[in-house]
């Protein structure tokens, strides 16, 4: 044992350094978020509760192709269609078992029409399982609730095309540009 090490040992230097750190931290601001009072804004593109999109005329965009249901890893989307007048496909029931959903967003990727979308809403609670068995009407109501207004529109637009939208040029791509306050 060297002399320096010996001195470190009997004077508890490393413990004192640790204690100095904790004491110093005591006077730094806390990082706690007081959740129900202060809500963290979710980032754009958050994968929350489902919603069925409406077009400009206020009609459901979904045509009932069933791709979302086929792609869904937890198989929680059920679509029932019938043949309507002039041989159109009519979506009778569009149901999402929200409690089984894993929020991977694959349904959004599968949909060719951008008919299903995930909203920013993440705090939902209820007293029974039935409340989370989302029917077509509930999903359409979600759309009115979370995708109206400018924010909702922009959010939908950002989220609608998660794949690289444009294969032709990469001018706007995020690149490292150096940082001003480099230490």
């Amino acid at each position: 044992m060297t002399a320096g090490k010996f001195i470190r040992t009997i004077f508890f230097i490393e413990i004192l350094q640790g204690m100095a750190l904790t004491l110093r931290t005591m006077f730094t601001p806390a990082v706690t978020r007081r959740y129900p009072k202060v809500k963290r804004p979710v980032q754009p593109g958050f994968r929350g509760l489902h919603a069925l999109a409406k077009n400009e005329e206020g009609k459901m965009k979904c045509v009932g192709c069933g791709l979302c249901g086929a792609y869904c890893p937890s198989q929680c989307i059920h679509i029932y269609t019938t043949e309507g007048e002039d041989h159109n496909k009519v979506v009778d029931r569009y149901e999402v078992e929200v409690l089984r959903c894993v929020y991977c967003g694959f349904c959004v990727e599968a949909c060719p029409f951008g008919a299903i979308s995930l909203s920013e809403h993440y705090e939902y609670s209820g007293y029974s399982r039935e409340e989370f068995y989302m029917t077509k009407d509930m999903l359409l109501a979600n759309w009115d609730k979370y995708f109206t207004g400018k924010k909702g529109e922009r959010y939908y637009k950002d989220f609608w095309g998660p794949k690289s939208e444009d294969f032709h040029g990469y001018e706007g791509q995020a690149m490292f540009k150096g940082i001003k306050n480099e230490k």
């Binding site: 904790t22 004491l23 931290t25 005591m26 006077f27 730094t28 806390a30 990082v31 706690t32 007081r34």
Partner: peptide, 10 residues
């Protein structure tokens, strides 16, 4: 309180 502030909480 003391431990909370030492641990960057409230």
């Amino acid at each position: 309180k003391v431990i909370g502030h030492m641990q960057v909480r409230l």
